[in-house]
Design a protein around this nucleic acid. Structure first.
Lengths: 295, 295
DNA sequence: ATGTCATCATAGATTCGATCTATCAGGGAC
DNA sequence: GTCCCTGATAGATCGAATCTATGATGACAT
């Protein structure tokens, strides 16, 4: 069975006349005659009652017509939707983001992304780096924002921007009065995230500390609350500074400075490379000059 | 676009593998490769991300898949429904019946027809002869039961059975005591149906009367009620006798007898001739030996 | 590293099917 | 009876789908 033949059938039923249906379909009258006879033979059902003054659908045909119309309509829907998906910068785009970045980056850039890439429907997905990369490889995500460099051959990445690390202290902490803080000074009572967070490893590396402390916050927000409650200090990425200050923390730059590099990762074979590139550039621009937050 | 290609797409998406999808589709792997590339070119959308270990649908493809599945499902529904319509004795069958016959014939035969022709879904349509024949010619009906012989070249008919006319009288009528009644005796105070009813013409012909009486009942039931109320006499077809007696009328045979011939009419070109013939024979058999009425 | 295996893509030949033009056949209408 | 309109048929032509054989590429293991 063929969509073309179904369209022929609809044309003949609509016009009640082979010749006019043929003209409307852009083919010759014998074509319709032959093809519709074939369709009848294939279905084993007489669809048309031919008369000297035209043609009428049989009862069986009338029974089938709803399905025929539905099939043709779905085919048209496929083409219509494909037309709107033809723009490489449109359609759903699933973007994985690590938890120490998502809550602080997304409010800054989402509105701007909608303005710059109106066709791209970004669906954020928050998870730890390893899970994100696994999902990315399984085609569950289109790209990921992470803070490490993946070394898998089927994944490519590009750096977006560097995010400095900052010291976050309770106001009553002895170091809170200082303008800058050295890494070693922070190491003594630093609190870190649970395992799996790249920020945990980076914080420990920066401070050259191998803490085996029992407190392992599962989110940066939790961690900052712990610091605010006086349980210790921590290292936060720059984009979280505003949130940290809102919680009453004292935020100080490190001396010498340290940072992490945020990278956008995608599958080497992904056909969405244009969208990936556009997204990367948009994020860089929006982070450098953040757009207003959506009301 | 082609239903075949849509099925290919579904197979590849389902198997995630061109080779296995090809096997499942009964074609070679290059066929799928070529056809799906063509489909992508036609839609202008990359549907599949080819990898070294298989293939995955793109985000755009996932967007389209519901429509693709729907189109294929509708096509399958067409074939499934066609299979069940393949039996010439099945499917909807619109049967026109004149009003002086329908209420008395249908209760006698409908249950039996369902038993003898279980696939045939008879949809009765009650109207005057001329309207019925017009609808029949316009393909709005598959066949008609009427009491006259149509003389249109595109319509064929066959007689089913003769239905005697009977005299119907109020119990108090002077003729009610007689065993049989002559036509002339009835003519004096006969009531007839409104124009358009063939029974009106037949009654007038039988009784050689040209009444211009004001009372023109629009249904046989009304007419019989008028007779029961003592407004006159009338001629009824035999199948209405039971109903007439239920209303308290006296029913008597004519001497000499008169009758009308009920015919089944269909379009000369109708492809439903097998159903028409089966229906004709079933009705004849059921009228001769009526089945039990449905409870 | 390097060979091996698996995967999809490509090329050329072949077969099948859709379509065209020209013509036929049948029914109504006058 | 004759004409005209309708759909059906025939034979040729063109295009498209498919096949087999082979290439290209990447992953994995030794």
């Amino acid at each position: 069975m063929n969509l073309r033949d179904l369209r022929y059938l609809l044309a003949v039923v609509e016009h009640g006349h082979f010749g006019r249906a043929a003209e409307a379909s852009g083919v010759s009258q014998p074509t319709l005659s032959v093809q519709l006879r074939k369709l009848e033979a294939e279905l084993g059902v007489v669809l048309l009652e031919r008369g000297a003054r035209g043609v009428a659908p049989t009862a069986a045909c009338r029974r089938l017509l709803p399905h025929v119309r539905a099939a043709v309509a779905e085919a048209d829907a496929i083409q219509a939707q494909a037309r709107s998906l033809r723009d490489p910068l449109s359609g759903p785009f699933r973007l994985g983001i690590i938890p120490t970045l998502a809550p602080y980056l997304l409010p800054r850039v989402l509105a701007g992304l909608r303005a710059r890439l109106p066709g791209l429907e970004i669906e954020p997905w928050e998870d730890l780096t390893d899970s994100l990369l696994e999902r990315l490889r399984e085609h569950d995500l289109d790209a990921c924002l992470i803070a490490t460099e993946p070394d898998q051959p089927d994944l490519l990445s590009r750096p977006l921007f560097d995010e400095p690390f900052l010291a976050a202290l309770p106001p009553a902490h002895p170091l809170a009065a200082r303008d800058t803080i050295a890494e070693e000074e922070l190491a003594r009572d630093i609190l870190v995230l649970a395992e799996g967070h790249c920020l945990r490893d980076q914080a420990l590396a920066v401070c050259r500390a191998a803490t085996a402390q029992p407190m392992r916050a599962t989110s940066l927000a939790t961690l900052m609350h712990l610091v605010a409650a006086g349980y210790g200090t921590t290292l936060i990425p720059a984009l979280a500074a505003e949130s940290a200050r809102d919680m009453g923390l004292v935020v100080r730059p490190l001396a010498p400075p340290a940072s992490r590099t945020l990278r956008l990762v995608w599958r080497a074979r992904s056909p969405r490379r244009p969208a990936v590139d556009a997204l990367a550039e948009a994020i860089v621009a929006l982070v450098a000059r953040p757009s207003a937050r959506p009301g």
